[in-house]
Structures are given as structure tokens and as C-alpha cells.
């Protein structure tokens, strides 16, 4: 386990979600499911975050916001699409102002479906995300080592 995966900090952004998944993301971190006991901490600052929880689909207006938050996060980083809207657009997939799932804007590592996504699913998704985080960290280290050797 890498240092980040022991206590993954998450940032949450509401794309064009109906709030159902947002309150479930918060409920995951609150008493009842208590994600914080695993060291999962919610932060508002993209630079502090390891895992990006996105709810809702992307549209013309928020696609740049989603990209900007993603770009601000430091490597290694993991994106979790929370809820079916973030995965594919869900019930709103054929609305005129919906482009589609979050993967239309940024690369997604873990898909957590559900309408609304259940806290149990979210905890599973974060655990799966932590594994990806470790892999990405190892790959980054390998890259650095290779670069050092070349020098």
C-alpha cells in the first residue's frame, strides 16, 4: 500500500446530477456508513485530493469545470463516476443538453452505477479506486527510476 492509499482524500463535484447521488456521497462519509474510519476525507481543494468523485452527466456548461478540476489534481489521481448518470447519462441520456457520461470529458477509472448510487457501492468503488491509485503510483515511480538511469 502506498502512502496515499492509506488515507485517500476525495473531492466531490456535482456535474448535472439530481442531488440524489450527491447526498449519498456525503452520506457515505457521515455516520451510518462512516467512510472516514477508512481514512477517506472530503476536501474542497483539488490539489489535496487523490480521488475525484463525479456525480451526474456532463453538459456544454460544466464540461470545462470538470476538466479544470481534473487537471488541477496532482498525479497519481483516480476518477470515480458515481451513479448511472455519471457512467452513461442514465435516464437523461437523450436530453438535449446532456453530452453523456463523465468519460466524455475525462478518463474514468471506476464506474459505480445505481440510481441513486448506494453508499455500499460507493465504498466498494473507492476501495477499487485505491487499488488503481497504488498501481498508478508504482508506475510513476518506475518512470522516475527509468528517467534517472538514462541520465
Amino acid at each position: 500500500m502506498g502512502y496515499a492509499s492509506r488515507s485517500p482524500w476525495v473531492i466531490h463535484y456535482d456535474g448535472s446530477s439530481c442531488n440524489g447521488c450527491d447526498i449519498e456521497v456525503l452520506a457515505t462519509l457521515c455516520p451510518g456508513f462512516d467512510g472516514e474510519r477508512f481514512g477517506v476525507v472530503n476536501t474542497g481543494n483539488p490539489k489535496h485530493a487523490d480521488i475525484f468523485l463525479v456525480t451526474g452527466s456532463v453538459n456544454e456548461q460544466n464540461i470545462d469545470v470538470v476538466r479544470q478540476i481534473y487537471d488541477q489534481m496532482v498525479e497519481p489521481k483516480v476518477v470515480v463516476a458515481c451513479g448511472i448518470c455519471a457512467c452513461s447519462g442514465g435516464v437523461f441520456h437523450d436530453c438535449y443538453n446532456v453530452i453523456g457520461g463523465v468519460d466524455q470529458a475525462i478518463p474514468v477509472d471506476v464506474y459505480a452505477p445505481g440510481c441513486a448510487v448506494r453508499p455500499e457501492t460507493l465504498i466498494d468503488a473507492i476501495v477499487a479506486g485505491v487499488k488503481v491509485l497504488d498501481e498508478k503510483e508504482a508506475a510513476l515511480k518506475e518512470q522516475k527510476r527509468a528517467a534517472k538511469k538514462e541520465r
Binding site: D14, N19, G20, I23, N62, F92, D94, C95, Y96, V98
Partner: peptide
């Protein structure tokens, strides 16, 4: 968050639309 779901009534009949209506807000 504008999705334009009011226009979805054209694609869903009045029984189906109730599931869209309740997803206006969670």
C-alpha cells in the same frame, strides 16, 4: 445542471415520465 428534462415528455409517455419527474431532484 440544466438537462432539459421538460422536453423528455415527448419521448416518455405519461406513466414513464413519473420516473423522470422524481429525478428532477434527489
Amino acid at each position: 445542471i440544466h438537462r432539459g428534462l421538460e422536453k423528455l415528455v415527448e419521448k416518455r409517455d405519461y406513466n414513464q415520465f413519473i420516473y423522470v419527474a422524481e429525478r428532477i431532484c434527489g
